[in-house]
């Protein structure tokens, strides 16, 4: 296998069945590692293939990735502890989301995972208190743009991002799961009510809600950037928690269709395989749009998912106004 691999199948195959890497030539390892880095999955890959025969240099790079994920885990837990300390005087127990939640709860999904920002969930009626407590403890606004700030506050499911002035780490304070303008409206209050403490003044979502949140994050929000990692999270969570009561819970959150799709795609890419619908195949095409040089490929598919992400997020007229404002400011397009 050379470096000119057309899509991220090489990465998905290695995660699903690590022994398949035995067939890789050195160029194949270079491609695999480049692809895994681009998809933020190199720490996960390193954990999966640890101990298997491979070129010594590949082992060295992956060991460094493992160690780096370990350092990242310590930093993420420290950041969560700092947030808990800042919010405790206001009587708030932050509910950890995504990567930090997985490592705090000691879940398989957290093993080797790269963790960026700290994501927490607090009740919507307490959001102002949470904001004040964080501002008082050294967090500051990231977005100076008044349009962006106003946009977040009116329409989004989270506060505008805050960054800590000493530790340089971002925090996203969510008060619900999806943007307020989204067509799907998961029951955040139910999620908060059923959250489980993990010690240290912190909590995580109950298992089924954790899966639903990951599913919402993957399919109902965003353009599937980082989708392979999010789908890996879901695969690990389902593997660990099972599916008892999951469909009912997803239905309650309006995420039944998305959960079913996540299960099919996780089976197809990371499991023993399953039948896919035509639309599923389009998702797979997007998820695998990365070549052996780590390049983003399939620009038309990517653009389609980028447009879709906005379509899901807001009604048409609002979308038009938003894109016009962003375009005037020379704002972002699909990356």
């Amino acid at each position: 296998m050379g470096g000119g691999l057309k899509d991220a199948r090489i990465l998905v195959d290695a995660l699903r069945d690590p022994t398949r890497t035995a067939a890789l030539e050195p160029e194949g390892w270079t491609a695999l590692i480049a692809c895994a880095r681009a998809e933020q999955l190199v720490g996960t890959l390193a954990e999966r293939v640890a101990g298997l025969p491979m070129p010594p240099r590949a082992a060295e790079l992956l060991e460094a990735a493992r160690r780096s994920a370990d350092t990242g885990r310590t930093a993420a837990l420290w950041e969560a502890a700092c947030a808990a300390r800042a919010l405790a005087p206001a009587g708030l127990t932050p509910i950890l989301l995504k990567g930090t939640a997985y490592v705090a709860a000691g879940l398989k999904a957290g093993v080797g995972r790269s963790i960026g920002d700290l994501d927490i969930l607090v009740p919507r009626d307490r959001i102002d208190q949470a904001e004040q407590a964080l501002l008082g403890a050294g967090w500051e606004w990231v977005k100076p743009d008044p349009y962006d700030d106003e946009y977040y506050r009116r329409w989004m499911h989270e506060l505008p991002p805050l960054i800590h002035r000493e530790r340089d780490r971002m925090i996203d304070v969510h008060h619900t799961v999806l943007p307020l303008t989204a067509r799907i409206t998961p029951d955040a209050a139910a999620m908060i009510a059923d959250a489980e403490p993990v010690g240290g003044g912190l909590a995580v979502l109950a298992p089924a809600d954790m899966i639903c949140h990951a599913v919402a994050h993957l399919f109902a929000d965003g353009d599937l950037a980082g989708g392979l990692r999010n789908l890996w999270d879901i695969r690990c969570l389902i593997d660990e928690f099972g599916t008892d009561g999951l469909a009912a819970r997803a239905a309650r959150h309006g995420l039944g269709r998305e959960l079913a799709r996540a299960v099919r795609l996780a089976d197809a890419l990371y499991g023993s395989g399953t039948d896919l619908t035509l639309v599923d195949r389009w998702y797979v095409r997007r998820l695998l749009a990365r070549d052996g040089w780590g390049r983003a490929t399939r620009p038309v598919t990517r653009l389609a998912f980028y447009i879709r992400s906005h379509w899901l997020r807001m009604p048409p007229l609002m979308l038009a106004r938003h894109l016009l404002t962003k375009w005037r400011k020379g704002g972002p397009g699909p990356g």
């Binding site: 030539e25 070129p55 010594p56 240099r57 040089w293 780590g294």
Partner: peptide, 14 residues
């Protein structure tokens, strides 16, 4: 050449 034929880093000029 890179050790063991495996590059530590990939660089792209595009």
């Amino acid at each position: 050449a890179p050790a063991d034929g495996v590059a530590d880093y990939t660089v792209r000029l595009f």
